[in-house]
Nucleic acid binder design. Structure first.
Lengths: 192, 192
DNA sequence: TAATTCGCTTGATATAGATCAATTTATTTA
DNA sequence: TAAATAAATTGATCTATATCAAGCGAATTA
């Protein structure tokens, strides 16, 4: 299970054995069953989490009880609530497993310790956050400029690898449309 | 003009005189008239830009020629296209001045140099990017979960300080709704 | 100061997507 | 493997927002 993460690191940066061991020594392995929460609204998020297996989502629930998914993550993706972590305030978000999953957790102090002792790791993290910002900006642009169908086509093209693993209703939620609408859109696409 | 930036730095971090001078020595001051471009679609963005005066916007133009504003910036905000900068590819975005404005530019190499020589500066930058990611995630959430009116109310509440400086049609563009719709929404709010 | 342009409003109508309800199909669970 | 539950489809109707067009007032420009 840790192998997945080690391979990820090896692909991204070069580390000596001491550094590898330092990182490994503070990692916390956690298994999640389908539907199990990793973070529940109201709790304060304390970690940096890396998914080694499975599929997860981050979502908010509005006052009408409707879920709005803002993020999907699979193997080799990070997941968490940086806002809650940064401000140490109760999260407005939920994170749970769409499939049985495995994650590696680092407490924030340990994560910061790694960042300070392993510059390459710190740089990698900053690159990830920076790219993540780009992704989110593009998503904002799509959401204000595209039709429901365009958003869906962009989604399955961009996330072809895991789009098939996610229930349609969840994709609809992520796109900000209703499941019925997505069903009709797919139907319309299929019949041409 | 540089004072605004120096005061910003003083508010955020503690620097000795050498560090301050280092940063100042590589800053490029630039004035922009209303409507003047700082970045035009197709060009590669090369800088890190800080606004010391005025009001600016970042937007994309779709295939129908419609502008979609993804970002507003005023005094003490950073602006740019990190995606183009990072990948050194032509930008899909335009940045221009809504009011006569002044910006401070740092070339990417100089900016990186500052980051490496002044850790406090580097940390500040990472904090900004991290918070910016939060802001964008929240914006995604609003855009998939709120009505046009809710989005507008959130906008003027969140950006009360500069919302008044921005033409209504641009606010509509930022929210992903039509100017006519925003006009009607404001009307409806006013008459109750 | 008249003319022009721009930003905003208002009205009439159209439409994408939502809602509600009933089935059908697929997936879990007993 | 049957029963139960959840996910997806389909139809009818509704509604928020878009579109198109005209008009108005304020700000710029001639």
């Amino acid at each position: 299970m840790y192998d997945t993460f080690q391979e990820y690191l090896d692909r991204k940066i070069q580390l000596n054995n001491d550094e590898k061991e330092l990182i490994r020594s503070v990692s916390i392995l956690k298994k999640l069953r389908k539907k199990q929460y990793l973070l529940q609204e109201g709790d304060v998020w304390k970690y940096h989490a890396f998914i080694t297996r499975g599929c997860m989502r981050t979502y908010a629930v509005d006052d009408k009880g409707v879920e709005h998914i803002i993020y999907f993550g699979i193997e080799n993706w990070w997941i968490g609530d940086r806002e809650s972590l940064l401000s140490q305030t109760p999260s407005r978000l939920n994170i749970d497993a769409i499939e049985d999953s495995e994650v590696i957790l680092f407490t924030d102090p340990n994560f910061e310790m790694i960042c300070s002792k392993v510059p390459a790791f710190r740089d990698m993290v900053h690159t990830i956050i920076s790219k993540s910002l780009n992704v989110n900006q593009n998503r904002v642009l799509s959401s204000i400029s595209k039709t429901a169908e365009e958003k869906y086509l962009e989604f399955i093209q961009k996330y072809a690898d895991f789009a098939v693993r996610i229930p349609q209703a969840m994709i609809a939620s992520y796109l900000g449309i209703k499941p019925e609408t997505l069903s009709r859109i797919r139907n319309a696409i299929a019949r041409r």
